[in-house]
């Protein structure tokens, strides 16, 4: 419609040798400027839904692991989700190491899932990789599943002592978050 008006106007209809009209330039410039401006407006409109600064400030968690006895586990909270910290017994470590990783759905060894020098300290998210339920096995007296690790009651996923998926619908091992030992008894997660 802009074109009709322009064509009817004897001043702007004048094409140069290349077949361009002066009006084309201003049309493209105006639409481009409006497009860039519109896209720039989208940035804050979208970004405001991302985690706010107070949420990000809670994105690291310090956990004191000194009181965990072998065979025990504790639940902590990391980014508003459960975090399992478990001190493995020598038997559990042996059971985990006895498995051929290549036979697993998500092949990983216990060494790959723990920190060097702390292979008895298993830190994982307490979130089943199937549909996000909290598996049982971290608290005293809870069912630990057929492989002695964790058991998710929602759809029956069994995790072994290295929290690797062994049986059931979950696609992968319980996630090991980024963490480090800040001292022999403290870990900083996140």
């Amino acid at each position: 419609m802009a074109d009709t008006a322009a064509t009817a106007n004897p001043d702007s209809v004048a094409e140069n040798e290349d077949g361009y009209r002066r009006r084309d330039f201003i049309n493209i410039a105006a639409v481009s400027a409006a497009g860039v401006g519109g896209a720039a407006v989208l940035l804050p409109l979208i970004s405001q839904m991302a985690p706010s600064k107070d949420v990000l400030a809670e994105s690291t968690t310090e956990v004191d692991v000194s009181a965990i006895e072998p065979g025990q586990a504790i639940k902590a909270v990391f980014r508003k989700q459960p975090l399992f910290v478990r001190r493995l017994t020598p038997q559990e470590i042996a059971a985990a190491d006895a498995v051929d990783p290549s036979s697993l759905r998500d092949p990983q060894t216990l060494e790959e899932r723990t920190k060097e020098g702390h292979t008895d300290m298993l830190v994982t998210m307490g979130v089943c990789t199937h549909l996000g339920c909290v598996p049982l096995g971290a608290a005293e007296g809870e069912v630990r599943g057929e492989f002695g690790g964790y058991f998710c009651p929602c759809h029956g996923s069994h995790y072994d002592t290295a929290a690797r998926i062994r049986k059931g619908p979950a696609p992968s091992n319980l996630l090991v978050p980024e963490y480090e030992f800040t001292s022999d008894t403290t870990i900083l997660v996140g």
Partner: peptide, 26 residues
């Protein structure tokens, strides 16, 4: 999306919008 209409926290969520939420001040 970021405000809570509760007399306990309404003022605080307004400040939360101003300080914490991305582009909230704008």
């Amino acid at each position: 999306m970021h405000y809570a209409a509760n007399a306990q926290v309404a003022f605080a969520t307004t400040e939360h919008i101003m300080r914490d939420v991305n582009w909230g001040w704008m």
